[in-house]
Each structure stands twice: as structure tokens, then as C-alpha cells.
């Protein structure tokens, strides 16, 4: 990162006795998409609220770079948590009022609203009241609202949540198009496949701490993983239990997946051989983003976590 357009450094935030963020630093480069990952309660939404000044950190700083288009402080478009609209207004009226609130003059505000609706695939429902919108439509409208004001940076909290597969694909195309236009995007999501498809970088939070950041490839390379294949699930479970002290181990049927948190070169076979639990097949594998994520956040992946 050399010239981030949006960055937060050493952010710390507590809600009463709950430490929501503990010294988190994240930067978003121009024309890039950063995926913000983490289990529920990891602090993703808190971090996003800090970035858009909805909550004030106890410590740390937020810096906003200059817009290359306007030469002024970059404009941030965002939706955080669930999209929120006035149910008695139409989609267009909601966005028009938002554009006016941002200081856009009429009739430009109307044009911006219409353009944003078109980009989010909602042009045909522009004149429907949002009170009757489905969850997916509200999600799209949230993205459209974030596009109001021609932002340089987008901060989006689970934008694909509630979208059908076609809608999610459409959203990914939209993000790609925005990146090509020079817009930087920080997006939180639980859809790791989506992250692998559209994000340049990822930042993983767990329990209020930044546990990893960098490119998707670099995250995988930092870890070593093993896959042990057994003939029966019982032996697989016993092997996973034996390896749990040194590896993050999970089982799926007769397969044991091991991730070495230290990335060391030691072999799990050294542990299971004396126990008579040698597998039928042992493979050293490069962890996928999902595997790296699960290891970093300590979240079991399907099956049974040992």
C-alpha cells in the first residue's frame, strides 16, 4: 500500500466492557477492491462505521485521500448494516432526497438517482414505494444509494446478502466496473468465493483484531496444510484428536484437514505413526482462502472440529 484513498490506523473501540476493535489498521488502495472478512462479531461493521464516521473510535485515526477527479477529499459512499429507506417514498424519491442531502443540486440530483437505480438494476421499479421491496431489492437499493454523489470510495457491508445467484453475479460485475472507473471498494462479506472472484486484497478480523491482510495468494502461502485420507471416519476422528494440539484440525467423513498455524515443516505423520493411525494417503496442500480463513478465525469447517 503506497497511497491509500481510505485508511484506518490502530483503531480501537469498546462498547462498555466489550472490546470491539483492538488496534486495527486497514487501507484501501485506489482502484482496488478489499474484502473484509471475519466471523459474526469480529468487528467488521464497527470498523466500517468508524470509516464513515458513524461511530468515533476510542483511539486511532481515519485518513481520507484526495480525489483524483475533484482534487478535494475523496467522497465516500456507503451502506452499513442493513440498507435503510423511507418506506413511504419511492426508490427514486429516496435516492433523490439523499443526493440533495449530499448537496447535489436539482435537476442533477434526479439524474444521479436515476443513474444509480439503473446501475443497480432497479430502473423498472424506480417509482415503487420501498416499503414493499423484497430483501434483495432493498440490498440493490442500498448499493444504489451508496453510488449517489459519484463516490471515490465505497464501503459496503455484505452487499450480496439476500441476492439470488444471478443478482450476486450482477453485483460482482458492477464492482468490477466501478474498479475499472477508479473507484476503491471495501466490502465485507461471508461469501469467500465472491472474495476470491472480485477482491484484490483481503483483511481478516477476528475478535476485534486484524489477524491477516494482504493479497489472497499471500494469505494461502503463509500457511501449510495437510490432507489425510483414512478408510474409516472413526480412525480419522482419533487422528484429528491426536493432532489437535499442534494443528487446526477438522474432519469430513474419513478425511482430516490440518492447518499448521506456524507454517512449520513438521509432518503430522510423526505424531500419528506411533499411535498406529497412519492414513491411507497423506498430501501436503496449499490452503484455499476458505481454509486459511477458517484457520485464522478458528472457525470449524463443516464436519467436526477437533
Amino acid at each position: 500500500m503506497t497511497n491509500p484513498i481510505l485508511a484506518v490506523a490502530n483503531a480501537r473501540k469498546s462498547f462498555g466492557s466489550l472490546l470491539a476493535l483492538d488496534g486495527v489498521s486497514v487501507a484501501v488502495e485506489r482502484s482496488s477492491i478489499v474484502g473484509l472478512l471475519g466471523p459474526n462479531g469480529a468487528g467488521k461493521t464497527t470498523l466500517m462505521r468508524i470509516l464513515v464516521d458513524l461511530i468515533r473510535p476510542d483511539a486511532g485515526t481515519v485518513s481520507v485521500g484526495l480525489s483524483e477527479r475533484s482534487g478535494r477529499a475523496a467522497r465516500i459512499g456507503a451502506f452499513v448494516e442493513r440498507p435503510a429507506f423511507y418506506p413511504y417514498l419511492t426508490a427514486r424519491q429516496n435516492l433523490e432526497a439523499l443526493a440533495l442531502t449530499a448537496g447535489t443540486a436539482m435537476p442533477q440530483a434526479g439524474r444521479e438517482a436515476q443513474d444509480a437505480l439503473a446501475r443497480a438494476g432497479l430502473a423498472d421499479v424506480a417509482h415503487r414505494k420501498t416499503g414493499g421491496f423484497s430483501a434483495g431489492m432493498r440490498q440493490r437499493l442500498g448499493v444504489a444509494a451508496a453510488l449517489i454523489g459519484d463516490p471515490d470510495v465505497l464501503v459496503l457491508d455484505e452487499p450480496s446478502s439476500g441476492l439470488d445467484p444471478a443478482g450476486a453475479a450482477e453485483m460482482r460485475r458492477l464492482f468490477g466496473g466501478l474498479r475499472a472507473e477508479g473507484v476503491a471498494i471495501l466490502v465485507s462479506t461471508h461469501l469467500l468465493g465472491e472474495v476470491e472472484q472480485v477482491c484484490d486484497d483481503v483483511a481478516i478480523l477476528n475478535r476485534g483484531r486484524l489477524v491477516a491482510s494482504g493479497t489472497i495468494g499471500s494469505l494461502g502461502r503463509k500457511k501449510s496444510a495437510w490432507r489425510l485420507e483414512y478408510d474409516d471416519p472413526g480412525r480419522a476422528s482419533r487422528a484429528a484428536a491426536a493432532l489437535a494440539s499442534r494443528y487446526v484440525a477438522s474432519t469430513s467423513g474419513a478425511t482430516v484437514l490440518l492447518i499448521d498455524p506456524d507454517g512449520g515443516a513438521s509432518s503430522p505423520l510423526d505424531v500419528v505413526a506411533p499411535l498406529g493411525l497412519l492414513p491411507r494417503e497423506a498430501m501436503r496442500v496449499k490452503p484455499s482462502l476458505e481454509e486459511a480463513y477458517l484457520e485464522l478465525t478458528g472457525t470449524p469447517q463443516g464436519g467436526e472440529r477437533s
Binding site: 442493513r82 435503510a84 449530499a102 454523489g149
Partner: peptide, 18 residues
Amino acid sequence: GWGTVRPILIARRSRAAF
């Protein structure tokens, strides 16, 4: 109640102005 305070404050930035 509706949560519309969020997009408004993100768009307006200044809470006093809102």
C-alpha cells in the same frame, strides 16, 4: 427507527448541519 439516520449522516457528514 428506520435506520435512515445512517445514510443521511454518511451523505451529509456534518451532524450539526443535518
